[in-house]
Design a protein around this nucleic acid. Structure first.
Lengths: 207, 207, 207, 207
DNA sequence: TATGAATGAGCGTTCATTCAT
DNA sequence: AATGAATGAACGCTCATTCAT
């Protein structure tokens, strides 16, 4: 009998989540009050608790959303490219270009917060965080193995290790980007190195 | 001729700083009370304020100390090696091996906290953080240029970009290490790639 | 000719009152939310306010209902018995037997709550509470005087005082029953004493 | 090295306990804020938490103190009297006379609150409350048995039941006293009945 | 210099009550 | 008449900081 639709509830939930992400990123989790989140979401203090049980619960939702975003970022590009190496290149360029986007600064900060929280609460948040990272590594690893099968990367290369390296580079780039460093040149440098991993014969190509 | 020597004061100051680093890393800055820091340092709550004006002041000192450590980590190894490439390799191996050390977990966490704090307070903490990173990049860049001069790395490589890449990789490895990922294979993979940057003639050897 | 009949309204009012009594008794007045009462009565949060102006208003109704119950408890039995002494005995046994009934636990608790509320708000709730007690005392007093007139209790006994004593004993038994004490032996002990109040001649019978 | 003695700490603890008892009794537990308790005890809001972990903890202490008081009330008089019957009489008169004392009103209210709390939280508070009551019953039972041995009360009387009856009467008198009823005549009425329990021969004297 | 009791502002959270639908 | 989302004041509690000793 209520006029309030599920869509409305979902919208509010997203409003709050968005406000929380924005504020947690900019002022820190402890530096953000529930009042502020509510106000930012256009609600009164108490109303937030209809949608999230507690600040902790909200924080968990933010972390989850964050992981989802990161997972999606790498997922999308994986399928479309014609060759594995091109896919790798595309993913790299697109991932790094996001780093410069205005809205992405908050995502990076939240990824760091997530990592910290996971490190401090290994039992509650650790598994989820690790799973997210594992997922990305796995996807990259698969791409690398494909590239090896296609003769675009030396067979001797440890695909898992390389995947980890690329991920580490991406995460670290986030930190550097936060600091205002120019990370555009960084991805080119990285891609250059990856290209050098092509088998010599293959690189020399059609001679 | 006070009874209290400067040495005593310095020792106390270090006690407090150490306690703060340990606790900030493990429980978070806001999750740590001044009481706890004092207790951990063997002092009463009020005594801390003789050494640090405020919690913020103490936090600043922790960040500074942290930066100092990172700077030193890369500095040491730079001088001793016979060839630039070997120096690079040494630095990489030693930096990454530290990541596995038990006590280093705290350092990594604090580095992330520092990065976050710098991102949130660009005016107060940003410059110091950026300077620390710049310092490392500069040092690595110098080494790379030396390696290029010595014919160990292609002349065409952008030294600055490569330095950034290596640093990003190191920072990201910290996050992965926090998560329990094996970062030993990572550094080998990275060094392998760097080695591939040697000029073709050089790599092809005596032909 | 509204669709909503008075019967419907009354039923709702009773639903709410019942829910409030149950919950107030079990969780305390402050420990019970209007939401809970509404839910227990099968209504939404806001609907309660159509029947009771406020929580305080509802509480007042609960107290009143409670007093009514107590009054009725003693009233019923008073009329039917053939002799005053038997009436007294009947009332005692029936009152005490109720104490053991499962549903009566809540009534006892609410009686205590009423007493407390009356003590704390002598002006608003005091008179009503006192009147209820007075009513019972008066009824018992009348019975006792009847018993004296019938030679079943010494003429010298202060009827008012004895009535108070019996009431006190009943109220106290509620507290003991709440604690799980066996109050069955209690009433027998009390009745035994009351019987001893018979005039010596009467007790000795025809001598 | 502190100037603050244990005596000072104890005094504060008592201040707070006293304030809590007073306020809990007069305004109810939920109607009393920690602020008020602190203010009444001459402290700031936060200071209370040095002495009591939480409001619940403080409430527990109030209940305990209350039980202690009740226990002591019956204990004292038990020893001094020459004959068991006289002891019983003394205890009765002294217990009831306290009921009229100004400061005792609060104690009675708190006893009711304790009973309610025990009824609602049987696992946490129930045992302690029951123990207190048992203690009093036991003491009265012993006195009654002594009186029986001394020929002052019929051997046929169930001592335990009589003890319970006396206690119930006392507890109920508290409620009546709260209501402003005159409980002085009540105790006399009760003692009169107890005296009637003397063996007939004894009461009739040597004949 | 060191202590630790005290302060008090501020936070997360609850819930009686309102009101648009 | 009924709903239930929203309000917002108020509470219990924490903790950085101060200061008498």
């Amino acid at each position: 009998m209520t006029r309030v639709t599920q869509a409305h509830i979902d919208a509010r939930t997203q409003d709050i989540l968005g406000a929380a992400k924005r504020l947690f990123a900019r002022k820190g989790v402890d530096g953000t009050t529930m009042q502020e989140i509510a106000a930012d979401a256009g609600l009164s203090a108490g109303a937030v608790y209809r949608y999230y049980e507690s600040k902790d619960d909200l924080l968990r939702a933010v972390f989850e959303d964050c992981s989802e975003q990161h997972r999606a970022l790498f997922e999308e590009k994986a399928a479309v490219s014609p060759s594995p190496m091109e896919a790798l290149t595309d993913i790299g360029r697109s991932a790094w270009s996001q780093l410069k986007g205005d809205g992405f600064r908050d995502e990076v900060i939240l990824e760091l917060e997530t990592a910290l929280a996971a490190a401090r609460h290994p039992d509650e948040l650790g598994p989820a965080h690790r799973e997210t990272l594992d997922h990305v590594v796995e996807m990259l690893g698969r791409l690398i193995r494909d590239a090896q099968a296609a003769g675009q990367i030396e067979a001797g290369v440890d695909g898992q290790a390389l995947a980890l390296t690329l991920l580490a580079c991406y995460l670290g780039s986030g930190i550097l980007a936060l600091d205002g460093q120019d990370t555009d040149v960084l991805v080119e440098s990285l891609l250059h190195m990856v290209n050098k991993l092509a088998p010599v014969a293959g690189r020399n190509g059609g001679r």
